[in-house]
Design a protein around this nucleic acid. Structure first.
Lengths: 121, 121
DNA sequence: TACGGTGTACCATGTAACATAGTACACGTA
DNA sequence: TACGTGTACTATGTTACATGGTACACCGTA
């Protein structure tokens, strides 16, 4: 209904915003996220859409949800799920194929990666 | 209707198969692709779905289509569209955030990239 | 010229995902 | 008890996908 969107569903966009904030250190472990209804107001989304994002994030162990209390940032996983690694590699393959096609050097990709890893350790 | 699928639409899956074959050197510049109807039989898809993939690939300058003759592999683009680079970078950001989260080292990502760049120069 | 192969453009149908709206429930805390 | 929390429904509407089918303009060749 809202759907101004470019390519990605709204709930996935929200997931990435949260993930990025965790990766950047803006959201720290144990920190409480806004409630489903509150986040809906902030982001201009339907509470159901936020709930969908939260549920998906919990399935990925990014957040922890305690019924009646709220949702909280979880500590990073140490070992990766095989399926997740495979999925991640496939996505990287797509990026690399595309980069190669338009003559972007591997070093350019490397520096983009290092740039992100550098943020807050 | 067919839709056994994991995640990606069929026409996009076909696009990536063709792109990968170009990147790997299986398909060379000037080579003719199977016709829309022929490819549909090969891949078990509807001709319209193949046509959609071909049309998208032409929009990305991967192939060239000559009405009445067929579709052919195009030479690689030298300079990248700004929007495409931005899109590519965003995808890489997503990969990196996810990799960081599950404790995959940047060096691991680097080697995956170099591995693909190594294929047939 | 006629014919077959090519990409393209339609229209119609059905399925699934997405997003919203609204209601209700079980739980924990103050 | 009252309130806020996540969750689970049902319902509605839109959009993307995929397929089926038909038709057209173009090219090359017999």
């Amino acid at each position: 209904m809202a759907q101004i969107q470019r390519n990605q569903p709204l709930y996935e966009q929200l997931m990435w915003r949260i993930k990025a904030q965790v990766a950047a250190g803006v959201l720290v472990i144990g920190e409480k996220l806004p409630s489903v209804r509150e986040m809906a107001l902030i982001e201009g989304l339907n509470p159901n859409t936020v709930a969908k994002a939260y549920k998906a994030l919990e399935a990925q162990n990014v957040i922890e949800t305690v019924t009646g209390k709220g949702t909280f940032i979880r500590r990073n996983g140490e070992n990766a799920d095989d399926e997740l690694v495979e999925q991640l590699k496939n996505k990287l393959i797509e990026v690399t194929i595309e980069a190669k096609r338009v003559s972007i050097s591997p070093n350019q990709l490397h520096s983009w990666i290092d740039e992100l890893y550098g943020e807050k350790q």
